[in-house]
Design a binder for these strands. Sequence first.
RNA 1: GCGGGUGUAGCUCAGUUGGUUAGAGCGCGAGAUUGUGGCUCUUGAGGUCGCCGGUUCAACUCCGGUCACUCGCCCCA
Length: 412
Amino acid sequence: MSKIQSVRGTKDIYSSVMRSYNHIINEARLVAELFGYEEASFPIFEKAEVFSRPLGVASDVVSKETYTFEDRGGEKITLRPEGTAGVIRSIISEGKINDLPLRLFYSGPMFRYERPQKGRLRQFFQIGIESIGNHGPLEDAEVISCGARLLKRLGFQRDCVLNINSLGDAESRALYRKSLVDYFSKNLEKLSKLSQSRLSLNPLRILDSKEPQDEEVIFKAPLFSSYLNNLSIDHFEKVKSFLDSSGIEYSHNEKLVRGLDYYSHTTFEFITTRLGSQGTVLGGGRYDGLSEMLGGPSIPAVGFAAGVDRLVMLTANLEENSTILSILPVEEENFEYCYNLLNIFRENDIKCEIFEGGNLSKNLKKISKKNRKLVIIVGDEEIQNKQVILKDLSTGEQIKIQETDILEKINV
RNA sequence: GCGGGUGUAGCUCAGUUGGUUAGAGCGCGAGAUUGUGGCUCUUGAGGUCGCCGGUUCAACUCCGGUCACUCGCCCCA
């Protein structure tokens, strides 16, 4: 009988790591608000079709990475592998199309049945923003600069580089796709096995191949930029000029393509080298085609998602001194007095805790291990003199304060 | 789903060519300290050596399988 353990690819989060998660989510919320986003929350599971329709049944995400099951009513349910499809489903089913444009921020767990790796879990946390209802290039740039602002605020701007690309509109993409398929078909035998199989499924992905064998063929492949129509070129140029005037550095990476069909125009990724092969820390793009794939009207939208777990790995753990005030009776008989004190503190919004049992020495030891900073000690002598001892564990200093002065002397 | 590495105490790790009672440091408990944590000293608890099977007189050690972690591939956050 082995010890019970957590499900593969999930993890438990405590104390300082938990603080890092909260810190990142809180900063993200703040930055999103700075850009006019409102927080919203969406179900972590949806009807399976919400993901299978837009992502395509053949896509990796749906065909092998999805947690799908039938519930007791026979409904096919999928645990969300990403946030965007659910948000658009909500816009359609809640009738929010009448309230557009909307800028929404959300955070929460996502689920993907993948082989776990550093920075890749089966349950992982994302924060994301979706700007829905704006078709102009300004919004693409706004979303990117929101991401840049967040990374800067978290102190990662030196660790991350921004890659951007344009996939053009549907017309440009169809044209390019055709020429790419033609080109790769002619050079089929030079391609790696992997890329050969990608040719029919997702030819754009070949550009992103890491097989050394493909390098030469890819190098000579037709460039997306020469197939963009005027509309698409104009859109992309404007995005870049907005980024320029916001002082955001980027490199145009023509090989940056997305696996999913509903993307159009701008795609981008902030990548770090500090996390090995799972280096994408924040990524997104425009997905004008998604709503129609879900049976809704045509709605333009842009957004990004960032992996909180990956951001946490870039963060030094936040070791804070606890602001919780500990109250310790010296003897059992002093407990009642301390308990009254505790209730008074809580009435006054002072975070506090009390210990019963054990001796003073042991309780002090436990408290100091938890990084508590302040402790109140009360024994017979103090009660007699209408005083309490206030001890600062970080300096070891302690003072006596009068019962009547306690509330004003304590600022936690 | 595919390839490489790893798995010994709560944590980090030793453990000889297979040889009988499996170790260390840190952490944890008790005490030195019957009104004061951190430092020090004494002392104690804690392991079916990831799990299952095989080889052997004998397996933590060798072999096979399996599970988990990890590094790549795929894909993405």
